[in-house]
């Protein structure tokens, strides 16, 4: 009897001890990863964090391959497998699997298992959380866009500017938000914004109109071109940045691609890999340290990556200050001369 009691106590003790603290045979955390575009940088950063921290995890990886119809299957699978945590990639996956506020249905969404989201540009606007300080729900996550203030400070640290230019897709909500924020900042910091929409035809933006808009900006006396995170502009980035270079207009991009794979002069972004690591850190707070997801704030990574496209800099002869150069990652495939 006593022995059996002792055994029970031991069993209770074992279940009470957090798994990470149990030195022998640590039971790995089971994490269900719902991806949108397959295994990429953010997912890799998420996985590497646990490896680096020596936290044993068992990853169940599912790829929706940009097919929204697969997501209900994922939800069903999660309910069946009952993992310790769910990772959702991108706005769509997060909205579909976790539900937007006011429309959360425990039958169709995951509510009883903690979840972390990554690569959601605007979690509040997407209806995932009411505020970045706390989700008030069983979820948390990492954002990946630098605040507009941070971006403007970065541009100012390259050169003080008085006139910022922008070409945008009038159908893209992200761009409209950016314009709104830039105008507000301009009033307090002291610069003007000239934002020109791309022409529309058949309800679609016309790529061919981009170059003319850039020329118009240059004519308006714009100092620097701001390139917002905009799918249309991302697709036609060569048109946009090529036009800027031709007009000898320095350009700043809020996303990686225009700088790294095109001709934007520089950019301030959070690397997907870093965002993945930060998301994993938040998962650790929940799994290892037992925090409630609602107690973990939603924020971007601490360190902004500054990427400088050196061939463009040389072509424009618009050189970065020494301090900024010391902090920047330089893209310079060919090298000088």
């Amino acid at each position: 009897m006593i022995r059996r009691l002792a055994g029970l106590v031991l069993l209770a003790a074992l279940t009470l001890v957090p798994p990470a603290a149990a030195a022998e045979a640590p039971k790995p955390f089971r994490i269900y990863m719902a991806l949108w575009r397959g295994w990429e940088e953010a997912a890799q950063g998420f996985k590497d964090y646990f490896a680096n921290q020596n936290i044993p995890v068992e990853l169940i990886v599912r790829n929706a391959a940009q097919d929204k119809s697969k997501l209900p299957e994922f939800v069903a699978e999660v309910k069946r497998l009952k993992p310790d945590l769910v990772f959702t990639w991108g706005t769509t996956v997060s909205q579909e699997m976790l539900g937007v506020i006011g429309k959360v249905d425990p039958a169709r969404h995951i509510t009883d298992i903690p979840a972390v989201f990554a690569i959601v540009s605007q979690p509040i606007e997407a209806g995932l959380v009411p505020s970045l300080a706390s989700s008030g729900r069983n979820i948390t996550g990492a954002t990946y866009l630098a605040s507009m203030e941070t971006q403007v400070n970065l541009i100012q640290s390259w050169r003080r500017f008085r006139h910022l230019g922008m070409v945008y897709n009038p159908l893209e909500a992200n761009s409209l938000v950016a314009i709104h924020e830039l105008e507000a900042l301009g009033r307090s910091v002291g610069f003007t914004l000239t934002a020109l929409p791309a022409d529309l035809a058949d309800g679609k933006p016309v790529p061919a109109s981009i170059a003319a808009k850039v020329a118009a900006l240059k004519a308006a006396g714009v100092d620097i071109l701001y390139i917002p995170p905009d799918t249309f502009l991302n697709v036609h980035r060569d048109l946009l940045t090529g036009a800027a270079l031709e007009q000898r207009l320095p350009s700043y991009a809020a996303a990686e691609n225009p700088v790294v794979t095109s001709k934007a002069m520089f950019g301030g972004i959070y690397r997907y890999y870093t965002v993945g690591q930060l998301t994993a850190y938040k998962a650790e707070q929940i799994l290892v340290h037992g925090k409630a997801p609602s107690a973990v704030a939603i924020d971007p990574p601490r360190r902004l990556s500054i990427i400088v496209n050196m061939p463009v800099v040389r072509a424009l002869e618009f050189y970065p200050p020494m301090k900024l150069l010391g902090l920047a990652e330089v893209v310079d495939p060919a090298g000088a001369k």
């Binding site: 050169r159 050196m310 800099v313 040389r314 002869e317 050189y319 970065p320 200050p321 020494m322 301090k323 900024l324 150069l325 010391g326 330089v330 310079d332 000088a336 001369k337």
Partner: peptide, 22 residues
């Protein structure tokens, strides 16, 4: 070393920017 880095990137020495802050 830092100045040489800038020079390597093709920035002419006399056109370095932000040397006071540096």
């Amino acid at each position: 070393g830092d100045i040489a880095h800038a020079a390597t990137l093709g920035i002419p020495l006399d056109r370095l920017v932000g040397m006071d802050e540096f």
